[in-house]
Design a protein around this nucleic acid. Structure first.
Length: 150
DNA sequence: TATAGTTGGAATT
DNA sequence: AATTCCAACTATA
């Protein structure tokens, strides 16, 4: 487990080389940022720092622990969304032949925001929701240069 | 199994 | 613009 310093510090939990959880602290908890010495964790830490400073980073090579097959299906599709691009719940639902609501649920259950870019999935009108807080979602979109209309 | 709740969307008033 | 219905999935009892 390690924490990446940012506007909203990011806490990353891992088991081996697999990411199990990513969360934003938003100043609620106090955790000291520290950098892993080596391995996948160190690479991820560096990638995150670069990402938050505006570099076009892809986290697709990192493995994330996903419980259900449905979650893997939906989030797998989400990971195909490129940097700076967006899609909607409806689009995903159509592609996966499911309902927009089910997609929303899967995204809410996403254990690793940022690594799996669920923030690039918006509602058809406006900007859906975000389990870690909408302020975080807006900030992430802003970093990638996506302008919100509403 | 039954039921209610979801980061939605479309239809209807 | 506000309300109502729909759909696929999950969590809970």
């Amino acid at each position: 487990m390690f924490v990446v310093p940012w506007k909203f510090p990011v806490k990353v939990s891992m088991r081996g080389n697999v990411i199990t959880k990513v969360e934003f602290l938003k100043g609620k908890e106090k955790t000291i940022a520290r950098r892993p010495k080596s391995g996948v964790a160190a690479a991820l830490y560096d990638n995150m720092l670069a990402y938050f400073s505006g570099e076009r980073i892809s986290f697709n090579r990192y493995e994330v622990e996903l419980r259900s097959a449905f979650l893997r299906r939906v989030l797998g599709e989400v990971r195909k969304i490129g940097y700076g691009e967006t899609t909607t719940y409806g689009e995903l639902a159509k592609k996966l032949e499911t309902s927009p609501r089910a997609v929303g649920q899967a995204l809410k259950a996403n254990p690793a925001p940022v690594v799996i870019p669920c923030h690039r999935v918006l509602a058809k009108r406006g900007l859906g929701g975000f389990s870690q807080g909408l302020d975080v979602k807006r900030e992430l979109l802003r970093i990638e240069g996506i302008d919100l209309i509403t």
